[in-house]
Amino acid sequence: MGESKPRPRPPLPYNMRDVVLPGDAACPGCPIPMGWKVLSAVFGEKMILVIPASCSSVVVGAYPGNSLKASVVHVAFASAGAVASGITEALRRRGINDVQVIAWAGDGGTADIGMASLSGAAERNHDFIYIMYDNEAYMNTGIQRSSSTPYGAWTTTTPIIGKTEHKKDVAKIMIAHGVPYVATASVAYPHDFYAKLQRAKRIHGFKFIHLHAPCPVGWRFDPKYTARIARLAVETGLWVLYEYYDGKLRLSGPSRPYLDPSKRKPVEEYLKLQGRFKRLTPEKIEEIKKYVEWNWEWVKRHM
């Protein structure tokens, strides 16, 4: 065999090696470091993460150490958007242009408690990326219901019949703000998330990314299925991957086949893997299917 030309080094595993350090305080199978690895593949150490109270502030570890080689600012729960705006402006005044400010907040810190400061930052169109990693409940404090919890899901505050309201779709709220870039992503599709971050990096103004992140502890499934469940959410059509910029919605590659309802997997496949949907009645599953249809109708209208 002759000397074969070495393959070009793909950016995704090779660029994500250095920044996220092993031995963080996350539970086994946690999607948060998976998301950080993709972030580090795009920005390297040149990022400032603004983390409000959430699982992430635990995952980076206690005081003398920090499991990320990037800068982390821990802030109060409601203030991620406000602090990130301030840091962005301060960097701009000091002429530092190569550092990306990223607000990394959970669904509680975005959809419920941080909504006001997020809305303010979006309205002022500050130049940073806001990433909401959505594990669909307050996992850090013990699985309480958040407004981002889906219909029918068990949490410790909706114990018997599950949540009776549908999920608050923050990406739609941010589209209504008229910001330059809104996207949804999933930890099961790191290449897609990588491409979206690369696009967000080049756009000036407020960028919002809604990242779907299954939590093994709160959703009651085996830690090894984190990636599989995130992928099933896309394949059943419950989670739609899209980008919204220049006033138009663009479906991302992984979600494109599921525009056709016959190609989608049955919703039950996604629900049966998770203990939080154990007590769903058939009527509730019908209601979830109706929600999926309604969501896709909205997507079709805006394409």
């Binding site: 350090l21 963080d24 920090n66």
Partner: peptide, 11 residues
């Protein structure tokens, strides 16, 4: 806090 491998000990 400084970057450190194994903040939560040997996991």
């Amino acid at each position: 806090a400084r970057p450190k491998q194994g903040v939560a000990g040997k996991t």
